[in-house]
Design a protein around this nucleic acid. Structure first.
Lengths: 246, 246
DNA sequence: GGTCCGGTTTGATCTGGGTCAAGGCTCAGG
DNA sequence: CCTGAGCCTTGACCCAGATCAAACCGGACC
């Protein structure tokens, strides 16, 4: 598996970065991480891990989008997290995977065999510390999402999701967080429905409604323009500018 | 604040225990933790922390039940976690609280001022490691709950909640996990509704329905007997015996 | 060009759970 | 014993979103 051209200049720091460059990066650690890393690519739609599988690696998303989903026996599914570039996958100290992980778009992952990574973690408390912080971020995000799932209307759910994607895009395209915002939806209507606990028809209808009401503009089915983020946030019923991720 | 009589013989190890006694407890660490701990009690219904407040302590629940909730401006609320005895509160390395924490029943907490606790954590990687594991457990639990909130019917939601409470009770009353199970509901109908993303009327109706169908028996409003846990689990639509907590 | 196909939109209808409203228990206090 | 306050239950009705069904769109492939 030869390393693809990367948008990051160095991938070695991915697992201890997470939505922002770590301020305390340490050359020795990166050296060690570089030594044990390798790359994997997945096509859109391809599974990465099945729930219950033994996971012998951890890693982070370099490019593309992956999703975490849970499925009931009768087929109902709920997406429980979105993995965007720089997000971490896998859990040191755990044997099996807890959810299905799948590539939503084409995905490049930077992986580390679990054993050496755990050993490195033992030696370098800084990495363990970063991992704790990242996990706390994910926990906050998951709990934020519980409010969305449990108490928001369909329209608010859609607006919340759009706000999250726009927001996340803004951090990747620095200078963001202005009122106007343009981005591509990385998810199908069905995937959005799975994320939001809705049906795809309801997702479609609510997107049409937001368009009709001038909250968003659509070019094709995926390219979104938000003329005024504040209005979108209002629709989301969400003063907190909380960023969900996964 | 004098220390109350505790069900645990030592409280010092609470923050690094979590639903099970830690196998690697270390006398020195416990000593250090003992030195900086103190107790606080809260009456049922009393707030413990408001979302956004500066939190200058971390701690764990010694007895009673506390809840984490999020509230929207218009008053809709969603409970995002239940804190049962031995569960950890607060996040080292974070300034403000992310949710409202309130005592659901009378609660005794074992607290540590944050600064000394963090310093102790720096020195003893074992504690940091335990904390990471606990956080991962909570993350799994939160994601499990996302499936409940997003995809389950009202009846399944109630059954899921009862299963969780029964299950948790069983771990406290060793020898559990038999088919028959008896416990007291520590939550009002309203709190259950907030947890499940339902209204209290729906909660009441579904509990009545489960009673009518012989899945549960009720004595008064709080005392529950589950004659056959397997049937309850079926109603929860949940093969996974996953335990939620908080 | 045509046609196939997956993703999407839109319409018509149904229904689970929300909303509103009226009592019912149970315990504390007088 | 009565009264009031909290919870809880139950009924009647309604509506947001699910379900079922049909058609639409845009790109890939012949």
């Amino acid at each position: 598996m030869n390393a693809p051209v990367l948008s990051h200049s160095r991938c070695g720091d991915c697992p201890i970065r997470h939505r922002a460059v770590c301020a305390r990066c340490n050359a020795d650690e990166l050296e060690e991480l570089d030594a044990i890393k390798y790359y994997r690519t997945y096509e859109a739609g391809q599974p990465i891990i099945w729930s219950g599988d033994v996971m012998n690696f951890v890693g982070s998303v370099v490019s593309g989008i992956a999703s975490l989903t849970q499925t009931m026996e009768d087929g109902r599914t709920q997406m429980v997290g979105l993995l965007l570039p720089s997000d971490f996958v896998g859990r040191p100290g755990r044997e099996g995977a807890a959810y299905d992980v799948a590539a939503t778009t084409d995905v490049v992952m930077c992986c580390f065999r679990k054993k050496p990574f755990e050993e490195l973690m033992e030696r370098t408390p800084h990495i363990a510390h970063r991992l704790l912080e990242m996990t706390l971020d994910e926990l906050d995000a998951a709990r934020e999402w519980m409010l969305v799932l449990g108490r928001k209307t369909a329209r608010e759910k859609i607006a919340s999701l759009l706000a999250i994607i726009a927001r996340r895009d803004a951090t990747l395209t620095p200078g963001g967080a202005t009122n106007r915002m343009v981005f591509d939806l990385p998810l199908t209507r069905e995937a959005m429905a799975d994320y939001l606990g809705l049906t795809l028809e309801t997702v479609s209808r609510q997107i049409s409604a937001l368009k009709r009401d001038g909250i968003i503009e659509l070019e094709g089915k995926r390219h979104v323009t938000v003329p005024d983020m504040r209005r979108l946030m209002e629709e989301a019923g969400d003063d907190s500018d909380g960023g969900f991720l996964g």
